[in-house]
Amino acid sequence: MYLLQADSSGISKLMFIGTFGMLTLAVGIIVFVIFHQRKIIRYQMQMKRFEAEKQQILLNASIRFQEEERQRIAADLHDDAGPLLATARLYLNENLVNQEKHQQLQSIISAKQIIDDAILLIRNISHSLMPPTLKNFGLESASTDLFQKISGSGVINASARFHDYKERLKVEQELLVFRIIQELVNNILKHSSAGFIHLTQNITGDNLYLRIHHDGKGITQAEFDRLNQGSQGLGLKNIASRINLLKGNIFFEIDPSQTYYKITIEIPRVNKF
């Protein structure tokens, strides 16, 4: 109606204001879209960098752990197996044939004893690398065995209960999970002064859950993240890197009553590994 009544100057004004308004709006929208997207890209790049740095820390930790493990094995072999075999060799030297019969027998028995010790030592090293119970009977037996041994020491009350572990994980997954449990239990024994450790397992949906409860001094998720970012806490970094390999999650919590700590490990059962 206004348009019909408007004179030429009115139409001109309306047209200019309208066009100018529309173009300003259009340019405003375009500039806003560009700047907003740039902000999002910067944020995403930063997140990616953080993630890459985190992965780098975890990777360094796992490599360092492997190196330490190799050094330990090398030291065991060099310091224990080496001298044992050298001693056995001494008993079985060339002079053995020139010795008296009973001396020969004594030397052979001693050498046999030393070789048996060396065999036992090598077996222990081998078992520490890949526990035979884990390989042959699975995570449930290996964990139960570990907790029974801890409980058997009489220092701490330890128990493990698997509620629903009919279908085994892959061997390499089981090894990773077992190493995580070992590391966590080790930490609890070393640092927490706990009176009990209790491990439970159950399955919900596509995920396998392992929960460790203890009544000692534990850590929360924030502390875990902090230690994980820092240069210390190699064991925790190993846990994080193993969890990463399993494509799982780990949560450190404290009970609302502040009486015990809970560690939850979540592992996807579907084959993402």
């Binding site: 139409i11 309306l14 047209m15 309208g18 066009t19 529309m22 173009l23 259009a26 340019v27 929208i29």
Partner: peptide
């Protein structure tokens, strides 16, 4: 296209 459609909107309208 956006500049064209917004800029000419009032032209077409009037």
């Amino acid at each position: 296209l956006f500049v064209y459609f917004t800029g000419n909107f009032f032209y077409i309208l009037l």
